[in-house]
Design a protein around this nucleic acid. Structure first.
Lengths: 110, 110
DNA sequence: AAAGTAAATCGTAATATTGCAATATAGTAA
DNA sequence: TTACTATATTGCAATATTACGATTTACTTT
């Protein structure tokens, strides 16, 4: 076998892993960076920007949406995507919690 | 086809995705949380703690090591793993950069 | 309505990940 | 050295991800 034993882990662990997994592909990092570098929200210009087909881009966007990292609104004929600040904030808290816990330990064994 | 067009993306994008991908599995999140919750570095008690075989745990540890999230030192017969603070800090910076860029945009279109 | 445009979905092939039993490796203890 | 213990690696099956052409859906324009 080889998959997702998600029942064996906590709700939080599964949630977090979905979030991180969504960020675990260079194309999706590139999409996020592109959204950040664009003043307005982005629409379908990603297909021209990246060496990936429209279908593939759409699939990556779907995953980012599923993880609540981006959100889209319909804008006439096209769709406008931008980041979800709440999810970014949550991510920030998670990492900070990691760092705080690590510092708190005070052990320096490695 | 169906894989890694990593040539088409920047070094940074590939690096970041490796980092996030390593965090993109509930077992690996659980391992990290366990390391954080343990005062000293952890050794092989993970196998008893999780419903996964020794081989599987070892494989997850290997991925975390590859992404530089954990580091291990040999401690007698067993191995002692703990988190790499530098990688956590890098992760923190990345997320903060995302948040800063987002705030900087000042557009509220979604 | 008909044609055009943009994004999503479907079907499918290639590849990667996950998980484990079995085995190998490396150190410890007798 | 031999037995023991702990972790890593190998080989393989099951599943998931990635990518894209073709198609569908939804909206716009003529």
């Amino acid at each position: 076998m080889g998959a997702s034993k998600s029942d064996h882990f906590t709700e939080e662990q599964n949630e977090l892993s979905i979030l991180f997994k969504a960020l675990g592909h260079p194309a999706r990092i590139a999409i996020i960076q592109h959204i950040l570098s664009t003043k307005s929200c982005i629409c379908g210009d990603l297909v021209e920007k990246f060496p990936l087909s429209q279908a593939t881009i759409s699939q990556h966007l779907k995953e980012l949406k599923y993880a609540n990292i981006i959100q889209g609104t319909i804008e006439g004929n096209s769709i406008c995507y931008c980041l979800n600040p709440q999810t970014l904030e949550k991510l920030n808290q998670v990492i900070n919690h990691f760092i705080d816990s690590e510092k708190c330990k005070g052990t320096q064994c490695c």
